[in-house]
């Protein structure tokens, strides 16, 4: 398997000389194609900063991030937007759907801003919606559907452009346990059937148990790594809890 994403000694500092905050101290890792990677850590461990840097919304203070063969840190601001829309898909905790558009239009938007030919848009949107089981909600506005359906729409929007990497930031944060389970099963299904590469940030052990590998962050560094291997999800979940307890993540991270 070739690596899709590679992080090379990245660091991120905030503030000035007097009030320097090291959000990320020195992190290096790579993500293989078709991998489902989870990133866990307590609040303030740097996981969201890491995701922002990978998603090019934020810049790194030092180090390099390679997506495929492209060094993201070398891209100019104008190139970044293009790079983002052509290579990355996002799923956010608060869905980030546009309330002015129907679910169908929200999914279409990801294609229209990429200037996909009009005749391709309809079938691709339908396909993505069918995969996420929201095909009959295409004409509804976000305020007319449930949180789980909104998140599935966000997921469809992220996938419809066939991104190289799907980034999910606490995707189940605003969902109940049933909706969370459904979404995670869907994500896993996508990962397994379409070989989509997923990088998911979460502080929820149950959520993380769907990943195939988990990086635990603490104080801006990788504390440890856990690989699912041939374990069942339940055993993997137990292992995650153990790591969290050992790392001092506390019971707050345990569902």
């Amino acid at each position: 398997m070739k690596p899709v994403l590679q992080l090379d000694h990245i660091q991120k500092y905030y503030g000035n000389e007097d009030t320097l905050t090291q959000a990320i101290r020195d992190i290096s890792f790579s993500v293989e194609e078709g991998e489902f990677l989870g990133i866990m850590g307590a609040s303030g461990s740097g996981k969201t900063t890491l995701l922002n840097c990978i998603s090019t919304i934020d810049t790194v203070s030092a180090g390099h991030i390679y997506l495929g063969s492209t060094d993201v840190t070398d891209l100019k601001p104008k190139q970044l937007a293009r790079f983002r829309r052509e290579n990355l898909g996002f799923i956010f905790q608060d869905f980030n759907l546009l309330d002015t558009l129907t679910l169908g239009e929200n999914i279409s938007l990801a294609l229209t801003i990429n200037n996909v030919p009009v005749h391709e848009i309809g079938p691709r949107v339908q396909e993505a919606a069918a995969r996420l089981n929201i095909a009959d909600l295409m004409d509804k506005y976000p305020y007319q559907v449930s949180g789980g359906q909104k998140q599935r729409c966000a997921c469809a929007r992220a996938l419809v452009g066939n991104p190289k990497l799907l980034l999910a930031d606490e995707p189940t944060g605003a969902l109940d346990s049933h909706a969370s389970q459904m979404l995670l099963s869907t994500l896993l299904g996508i990962n397994e059937t379409l070989h989509a590469t997923i990088l998911m940030v979460t502080h929820d052990a149950f959520c993380a148990s769907y990943a195939s590998r988990i990086l635990f962050l603490k104080d801006g560094r990788i504390l440890t790594e856990l690989i699912k291997g041939s374990d069942s999800r339940r055993i993997f979940y137990e292992k995650i809890l153990s790591v969290l307890t050992m790392s001092g993540g506390g019971q707050t991270n345990v569902c």
Partner: peptide, 11 residues
Amino acid sequence: GVLRKMGVEED
């Protein structure tokens, strides 16, 4: 903001 995250340029 959503547009920006989806990769639409500032221009």
